[in-house]
Design a protein around this nucleic acid. Sequence first.
DNA 1: GTAATGACCTTGG
DNA 2: ACCAAGGCCATTA
Length: 113
Amino acid sequence: MANTNNDFFEQVYQVVRLIPKGKVTSYGAIANYLGAKSSSRAVGYAMNAAHSQKPKVPAHRVLNRNGQLTGKHHFETPYQMQELLEKEKIKIENDTVLDLKKHYWDPTIELAL
DNA sequence: GTAATGACCTTGG
DNA sequence: ACCAAGGCCATTA
């Protein structure tokens, strides 16, 4: 099978790893930073193999545009994502991050040059 | 090689 | 403002 370590995947992992503690971002933001705002789905799929990567990727800091923990079900345990986010001082309710804007971390802005 | 799915987002009615 | 459909990328069957 094709190397899952494609540039696209690696790029996504890099950006996710660069997410500061207590910050969260969305798939579209990462895709947009990579220059493919329409590839939000591919970014999400990359996260699917994130746990398969050697360097653990903080996929729990990646949420959808709505701030929902859509991928919590894909973690080792559905509580992992919420717990990790809570440990980051991020309040979660109904699988949704509160003060999303306050904890929002946009790579296109933070990593923008 | 074609069809369907998925941790999504944007646009149209 | 709300609901519905389409699009894009990559992977798997």
